[in-house]
Measured scan of single mutants.
Amino acid sequence: RKWEEIAERLREEFNINPEEAREAVEKAGGNEEEARRIVKKRL
């Protein structure tokens, strides 16, 4: 699934746990840019 690939990239890029990465992607509706913004806000 594409969402899992996005979550994996976010996890590696921001050094967050898989659960946090998945939550961000879900919140963003699968949009990678939006997920990235969500993760950055949390850091």
Rank of each mutant, 00 (worst) to 15 (best):
N15W: 08
E23D: 14
K40V: 14
E8G: 09
R9E: 05
F14P: 01
I38E: 08
W3P: 06
A28F: 01
E4T: 06
K40S: 11
R42W: 10
R1F: 11
R36T: 05
I38S: 07
I6A: 05
E34Y: 04
E8H: 07
E34V: 11
L43E: 07
R36E: 05
A21W: 02
A28M: 03
E4L: 08
R9F: 04
L43H: 09
K2L: 14
R36A: 06
L10M: 05
W3G: 05
P18Y: 15
V25P: 00
G30L: 03
I16A: 04
R9I: 08
R36G: 04
R22T: 09
K41T: 13
G29P: 01
E32Q: 06
R37M: 10
G30S: 02
A35Y: 00
A24V: 11
L10Q: 00
E13S: 04
A7V: 13
R9N: 07
R1D: 15
R9S: 08
I6D: 01
E33I: 10
L43V: 09
N15P: 11
E5K: 06
P18W: 14
R22C: 05
N15A: 10
A35P: 00
E12R: 11
I16W: 01
I38D: 06
E33K: 08
R22H: 10
L10V: 05
E8L: 11
A21Q: 00
K2T: 11
E33T: 10
R36C: 04
R9W: 03
K41V: 12
E19T: 11
V39M: 04
P18S: 13
G29Q: 15
E19G: 08
A7T: 08
G30H: 03
R42E: 12
E20R: 04
N15S: 09
A7Q: 08
R22Q: 12
V39R: 01
E32H: 11
V39D: 00
R9M: 09
R11S: 14
E33A: 12
A21K: 00
N15K: 09
K40T: 11
I6M: 13
A35C: 02
E33F: 09
W3K: 08
K2Y: 12
E12K: 12
R22W: 15
R22L: 15
R9V: 07
R22K: 12
E34R: 09
R1L: 12
E34N: 08
E26R: 14
R42K: 12
P18N: 12
E19M: 10
E8Y: 04
G30R: 02
R9L: 09
N31Y: 07
